[in-house]
């Protein structure tokens, strides 16, 4: 089956392939996530904090290792020639990588996101926290998307690590900045969930940057003449 010149069957197959290649690591991360959730569910202050921290650390490291495993390693371990020997175009391989990368990250991301929503809404935590948490989570998602796109487009491992580190270190300044936004600062400790224009514009910005990263990588790939470096 094809769509706009892309072989959907092959793209699906490559996504499943990446999923299976990363599956073992993903299983480990899921076990870690379950442990983190169990710690949070235990409800003591120490276990809540430890579980919350573990959840975020796992989310960040899942992203880091997912990119390393399915994008960087494909080149480093020389499995890309094998993939390219299959009846696919470079663009289909790129699309499959993008989908697989997003899918693999979305599993833990959605677990963490839904847990946060559940915790904020169903426990004594102030509901206003939800808006702030969403901004931060979407920033993390954006960071992942940008890092994924860079990894797909740039072949240098050093650059990839630099970009990922840079994006990670930007998280805490972003958290401080988002916390200082007027409507967040006013409502974060209350039970009011307020989607102010200010907050919505930050969300819009996050969506825009994500879309831009994806679009630029797509454009870059359609122009790329060679998949493998000449030697």
């Amino acid at each position: 089956m094809t769509f706009a010149g892309h072989d959907l069957q092959m793209i699906r197959l490559l996504v499943v392939k990446d999923w299976q290649v990363y599956q073992k690591q993903l299983a480990g991360y899921l076990a870690g996530l379950l442990l983190a959730l169990s710690l949070i569910g235990t409800g003591r202050t120490w276990s809540f904090n430890a579980g919350g921290l573990l959840l975020l650390v796992l989310l960040v490291s899942t992203g880091f290792f997912a990119i390393g495993h399915i994008v960087v390693n494909e080149r480093k371990e020389s499995t890309l020639p094998f993939v390219m020997s299959l009846p696919v175009t470079a663009l289909d391989v790129f699309i499959a990588k993008l989908i697989a990368g997003l899918l693999i990250y979305l599993v833990p991301f959605l677990v963490v996101l839904s847990t946060t929503i559940l915790l904020v809404l169903a426990t004594s935590l102030p509901d206003g926290l939800l808006v702030y948490a969403m901004l931060v989570y979407f920033f993390m998602f954006l960071s992942y998307c940008v890092a994924l796109c860079v990894a797909i487009a740039v072949e240098s491992e050093g650059w990839n690590i630099f970009i990922q580190m840079a994006l990670m270190t930007m998280l805490s300044p972003f958290m401080i900045w988002a916390g200082s936004l007027q409507s967040i600062a006013t409502n974060v400790r209350t039970n009011h969930i307020v989607w102010s224009p200010e907050v919505l514009s930050v969300f819009g910005g996050e969506v825009l940057v994500t879309a831009l990263a994806l679009a630029v990588t797509c454009w870059f790939h359609t122009r790329k003449a060679s998949v493998l470096q000449s030697s």
Binding site: G41, G43, S47
Partner: peptide
């Protein structure tokens, strides 16, 4: 009963 929405470590 560990009936909360999240799993509890002791019950797991």
């Amino acid at each position: 009963a560990p009936e909360g929405p999240l799993p509890q470590l002791w019950a797991v």
